[in-house]
């Protein structure tokens, strides 16, 4: 384990940037980043061929620290940039890391459409149930009744189940894990990257500084241990009633379906279109007519 940590530090982290990092001590983002890097390392991907995109927020800072082709985009829009990158260069492995507010509030539309479109992308959503960077306001993943800086009397709205949202929107692969389950998380991220099609990885993470403190959930250790107690595997959850599943975190693979990838479908129709067009052009060139004169 130590050896792998050393590989990650040496091979994948940038050491020439200015700040150490912006995350609070005990933040789950570091665990997600470590799992992501070990997954990439385990898959033997060439760093030149990996793109890591992010939106805005604490998770949005992750690409800054990693030695891939990295892009820190605008709030909620990371998947749109990833879409452009992937379409322009389908050989690249494009990973997108987002927060819960980033992916499902301001970026909710892009998220469901990316799932529907089924481009070969991997989305990793770090769900800490709050907007940590801006001071702990409620997010679409904040549980009903929770306190935040914009719901000091208790939250009156209900949270998205992000992974199930992705399943409903048509993602090819959806999995969930938590920052407690570092090894499981790495395995799930590996599967998500390997999956051909749009894959979503929801990671339940802790923001003890904003969300935990206001809701008396304890510090980083208590919160992360809490995820251990709350988690049930997909298999175990199958035999549980909705009442028993209340407050639980179902971890594992929630959806894994094979369907045509739009990038590949596009290449197919483009090939056909090109063939047709070349025939027309050749015929017209004989007569000295250019293509756009139709």
């Amino acid at each position: 384990m130590l050896e792998r940590a050393e590989i990650v530090r040496k091979e994948y982290l940038r050491h020439d940037k200015k700040f150490p990092h912006v995350w609070c001590p005990g933040c789950g983002n570091g665990i997600v980043m470590g799992a992501l890097l070990r997954a990439v390392n385990g898959l033997g991907l060439d760093k030149d061929e990996v793109v890591l995109a992010s939106g805005i927020g604490c998770s949005g800072r992750m690409p800054t620290y990693i030695d891939f082709n990295t892009i820190h985009t605008t709030h909620g829009r990371a998947l749109t940039f990833s879409t452009g990158i992937k379409l322009a260069n389908p050989d690249l492995t494009v990973l997108t890391v987002m927060g819960d507010g980033d992916a499902t509030a301001i970026g909710g539309n892009h998220f469901i459409h990316a799932a529907r479109r089924n481009i070969n992308l991997t989305a990793i959503i770090v769900n800490n149930a709050t907007y940590g960077m801006t001071g702990g306001q409620y997010s679409p993943a904040t549980p009903y009744g929770s306190k935040s800086t914009t719901s000091v009397y208790g939250h009156v709205e209900h949270a998205f189940n992000i992974a199930e949202l992705a399943v409903a929107a048509g993602a090819s692969f959806v999995a969930r894990s938590t920052v407690y389950h570092a090894t499981h998380l790495e395995q799930m991220i590996t599967k998500a990257i390997q999956k051909r099609g749009f894959s979503v990885m929801e990671v339940i993470s802790n923001c003890h500084v904003q969300h935990g403190r206001r809701n008396k959930l304890g510090g980083a250790v208590q919160m992360i241990n809490g995820f251990k107690d709350q988690s049930v595997t997909v298999k175990k959850a199958e035999g549980m009633s909705p009442e028993e599943l209340e407050g639980k975190i179902t971890i594992g693979v929630l959806a894994d379906v094979d369907k045509p990838i739009s990038t590949e479908e596009y290449l197919r129709i483009a090939g056909e279109a090109k063939e047709k067009a070349d025939k027309v052009t050749k015929a017209k060139e004989k007569n000295g007519i250019k293509r756009y004169e139709e």
Binding site: A53, R77, T80, T83, A88, I269
Partner: peptide
């Protein structure tokens, strides 16, 4: 498609502009 390029209709103009910047990068 005929020229080996890419066309995509996005979910809104915010997304269109994001994809345009991504493709250019």
């Amino acid at each position: 498609p005929e020229l080996g390029g890419t066309f995509i209709q996005m979910e809104d103009e915010i997304a269109s502009m994001g994809a345009v910047v991504g493709a250019s990068l």
